[in-house]
Measured scan of single mutants.
Amino acid sequence: IINNLKLIREKKKISQSELAALLEVSRQTINGIEKNKYNPSLQLALKIAYYLNTPLEDIFQW
């Protein structure tokens, strides 16, 4: 999986903590996703895309 979450999140000036709060997950979860240590569920990936107002395929590429 190619993961552009960190790049997109930083472009939008959103911290890991802010995104985690919006998604109701821990900051460690966001960190793990960004470091490719954790693959989000489809539901979480869709929520990330929604809150970042970015197409899912721009954030994650399988």
Rank of each mutant, 00 (worst) to 15 (best):
I1R: 12
I1F: 15
I2P: 09
I2W: 12
N3Y: 02
N3P: 03
N3L: 03
N3D: 01
N3R: 03
N4Y: 08
N4G: 04
N4E: 04
L5R: 01
L5N: 01
L5E: 01
L5G: 00
L5W: 00
K6V: 07
K6N: 04
L7I: 14
L7C: 13
L7V: 15
I8H: 07
R9P: 01
R9H: 00
E10S: 08
E10T: 13
K11T: 11
K13W: 06
K13C: 12
I14Q: 04
I14P: 01
I14Y: 08
Q16R: 08
Q16C: 03
Q16M: 09
Q16W: 03
S17Y: 10
S17D: 14
E18Q: 13
E18F: 08
E18S: 10
E18L: 07
E18K: 14
L19E: 00
A21P: 01
L22P: 01
L22H: 13
L22A: 15
L23W: 02
L23N: 02
E24C: 15
E24V: 08
V25R: 03
V25G: 01
S26W: 04
S26R: 08
R27V: 15
R27G: 08
R27K: 13
Q28M: 11
Q28H: 14
Q28Y: 10
Q28S: 13
T29D: 07
T29Q: 09
I30R: 02
N31E: 15
G32S: 14
G32A: 15
G32M: 15
I33N: 00
I33W: 10
E34T: 02
K35D: 13
K35Q: 15
N36F: 11
K37C: 14
K37P: 03
Y38G: 06
Y38R: 10
Y38S: 09
P40Q: 01
P40F: 06
S41Y: 04
S41K: 06
L42P: 07
L42K: 08
L44A: 03
L44I: 07
L44W: 03
L44P: 00
A45F: 04
A45V: 05
A45T: 04
L46N: 08
L46M: 15
L46S: 07
K47C: 08
K47T: 05
I48E: 00
I48C: 04
A49W: 02
Y50N: 07
Y51A: 14
Y51R: 05
Y51Q: 07
Y51I: 14
N53Q: 14
N53M: 08
N53T: 07
N53F: 05
T54V: 13
P55L: 05
P55D: 08
P55N: 07
L56W: 05
E57D: 12
E57L: 08
E57P: 06
D58C: 12
D58I: 07
I59A: 01
I59F: 04
I59T: 01
I59S: 00
F60Y: 04
F60P: 01
F60R: 00
Q61P: 15
Q61L: 08
